[in-house]
Nucleic acid binder design. Structure first.
Ligand SMILES: [Zn+2]
Ligand SMILES: [Zn+2]
Ligand SMILES: [Zn+2]
Ligand SMILES: [Zn+2]
Lengths: 180, 180
DNA sequence: CACTAGAATGAGACATGGTCTCATCGAAGC
DNA sequence: GCTTCGATGAGACCATGTCTCATTCTAGTG
């Protein structure tokens, strides 16, 4: 009973495109799912599930988790492993791709070149494994952050103090949460 | 006050080798740390922090976490991201390496060939990032598991039903936990 | 249109992994 | 032996995610 009902069939919004993919796969199109979708589409470049929980306020937490998982299955979202160990999500346009993540500001670039297949062939031969997939994330600092840090040691020190995955997950989570 | 005190200086155990590295870096060598170390060394190929918490029974949980983190810093342990999203740990012998993980039985092989640097150079040029590190895990099925599954569809179906990272983390965690 | 099966939901308990605080302890240097 | 400051442990706390189960609602059927 919210305003965001289906729009005219010839001017399809992003939501409707996704809804169509749901239908095609035999999933039901519910108001909650629409709301989660709207919440996802309203996010910036990447976001946590909690962000969506807050954005889709009338939807239960469990349902947000379920819906996000569904969107992952449909390749509508992809996961980003930040170097602090937290998982973020982002709309996935391309097919196979990986992420280049700035450790300071969190900016994320997709990239599609992947050198892993060659490695995989050799591994398969050497180890006798059937290789089925891989996970690759690259971490660095974007130009803006690198430049800013030339003299100002402000944000950098805090953010990059502990670089190992999961190290300061707690602290960073908290900071990010309070920030909104 | 436990039996595992320092042994003769000319027959150094694994523990003492690590203890030396702690001392070199100015960390104190406490009984708790020795116990965690012993717990770690007693594990199979890879393990969770919880495994160590149980193995080093007289040591507080927080201290186990702190000590494992310390061992990561010292490159004595490395992290393995299982394809169900759980983190495991293993003794790290080599330097830069990655893991090939069997999705069915959890067997892990280290491999040192890494094709990422070439990719990184190209990325650095294309995106203007200063690239500082990467995370790569490869998933597949070891020969034993592949063969066993030829006809017996037992374990495989359960384990590989959901392949996305984190999907069945709960269920698998539980299974593994009960198993001991 | 009314009816229905079964998919989806929501509330909240539960599980897990990890961090933090703070009073106390003890390893190491003198 | 004393002192100092790093390390510890108990336990609260937090974030992320899953499960249960009674209830609701979509979508397909007649
Ligand atoms: Zn940046
Ligand atoms: Zn790839
Ligand atoms: Zn296997
Ligand atoms: Zn590498």
């Amino acid at each position: 009973m919210v305003s965001s009902k289906r729009t005219a069939p010839d001017a399809m919004s992003d939501i409707d495109l996704i809804v169509e993919r749901l239908e095609m796969r035999g999933h039901r199109v519910t108001e909650s799912r629409r709301r989660v979708l709207a919440g996802v589409l309203a996010q910036p470049a990447h976001f946590t599930i909690d962000d969506v929980v807050h954005a889709a306020r009338q939807v239960g937490r469990a349902t947000v988790f379920r819906t996000v998982k569904l969107l992952l299955d449909l390749n509508i979202l992809c996961r980003i492993l930040l170097d602090d160990g937290t998982l973020h999500y982002r709309l996935s346009t391309r097919g196979h791709h990986h992420h280049l993540v700035c450790r300071d500001c969190g900016r994320v670039e997709d990239f599609t070149r992947c050198d892993v297949p060659a490695l995989v062939r050799q591994l398969a031969r050497a180890t006798d494994y059937e290789i089925e997939g891989h996970w690759l994330e690259v971490y660095g600092r974007c130009r803006a952050c690198a430049r800013r840090d030339g003299r100002a040691r402000s944000g950098r020190a805090k953010n990059a103090a502990r670089r190992s995955i999961g190290a300061t997950a707690g602290a960073q989570r908290r900071r990010r949460t309070q920030a909104r």
